[in-house]
Computed example of a mutant assay.
Amino acid sequence: MSKHSKTPQKEQQEKEQKRTGYTYEEYKETADWLLAKTKCRPSVAVVLGSGLGGLAELMEDREAIKYSDIPNFPQSTVHGHAGHLVFGKLNGKPCVCMQGRFHMYEGYPLWKVTFPIRVFHLMGVDTVLVTNAAGGLNQDYKVGDIMVIKDHINMPGFAGQNPLIGRNDERFGPRFPAVSDAYDKSLRKLALAVGQELGCARIMREGVYCSLGGPNYETIAECVFLNRLGADAVGMSTVPEVIVARHCGLRVLGFSLITNKAVMDYDSEEVANHEEVLQTSKASSKIMEKLVTRLLPRIEPNNNVV
């Protein structure tokens, strides 16, 4: 047997790890590769949802890297997601922005969907800002409102779909992490205060985001059900990244841009569609950009990150 051949046990272990997640070495390989490609040392990672990728264009000293060029990185296949990792500064704050995220409905397992979050952690990021386009379930919400996420309902998690399934690596976090404090209270308070300063208080909300698997939009019965459960907005992303970020000890702030009203009336002629979501995102994203740009320099370092 040559020194390069693998034992059956080793091959089985590697096969098992591939089935349930990346190895620590693969996360580290990607983080080190990115650190060698950029001089930026980001403290905040921003995950940009459908139609919200324009924020990355405002960055100073921009360095954009295609997902396809990054070792081990998945590829975004959704229209409206550019598929670039952009390093630079937003209002003086060193950041990395994901222009496009990954979703379970693209065929990716959740450990692939959330791969970038652990890479960011290994790069020194201590705070993750997640954004998404969402349907408004709360009848008081209007199209164009910005919801600060205070909590979430993980519907795929009820069916056993969780990014932490598989072997736990204590170098990232504990086997059973708490998520009752998933969305940082002080950052939520700061976001609402900045919205007030910008004169956006009338469109600022604070509520519960519900994540579904997609890719189809929700039925009327599902919307009514989710609203009765306590969900204010619904979408197909965000929650997996938040779970992994909290597992790593990162702080999280989340925004949902309400791009359409969920259909909850059988007599309604309205039908949700992705083009409408993108158009509404384009029209309302400027406010979100101002909010995030004003907010970022006021985010203090997270001293709880190891």
Rank of each mutant, 00 (worst) to 15 (best):
V46P: 04
R251Q: 15
E270I: 11
H79N: 04
Q9W: 07
G80T: 07
I165Y: 00
F172S: 05
G199H: 01
S76Q: 03
H103A: 02
S285M: 02
A191H: 06
A193L: 14
E11V: 08
R205I: 01
S186R: 05
I65M: 09
A191P: 04
Q9E: 15
F158A: 09
V113P: 05
A272K: 02
R202S: 15
A245W: 04
F73N: 13
V194Y: 04
M1H: 13
V239Y: 13
A134H: 04
G235Q: 14
E11Q: 15
K189G: 02
E218T: 01
S2M: 08
L187N: 00
G92Q: 11
H103N: 03
A221R: 02
N91S: 09
S2H: 09
I299Y: 00
K150G: 10
A245D: 05
L296F: 03
N72Q: 15
Y22F: 15
E269F: 06
K6Y: 10
K261H: 04
A245K: 07
A133V: 06
T280D: 01
P109C: 12
F87E: 12
L212H: 02
L198T: 13
V119S: 04
T259P: 07
Q17R: 14
P163V: 11
Y266I: 04
N168G: 05
E276Y: 08
G124Q: 05
L198E: 05
K282E: 07
A182L: 09
F225V: 01
A159H: 13
P156N: 03
A231F: 12
F102L: 09
G21Q: 09
M1V: 11
D145F: 03
A272S: 07
A64S: 14
E25D: 15
P94W: 14
I299N: 00
R101S: 06
F172R: 04
F158V: 11
E170V: 04
C40I: 14
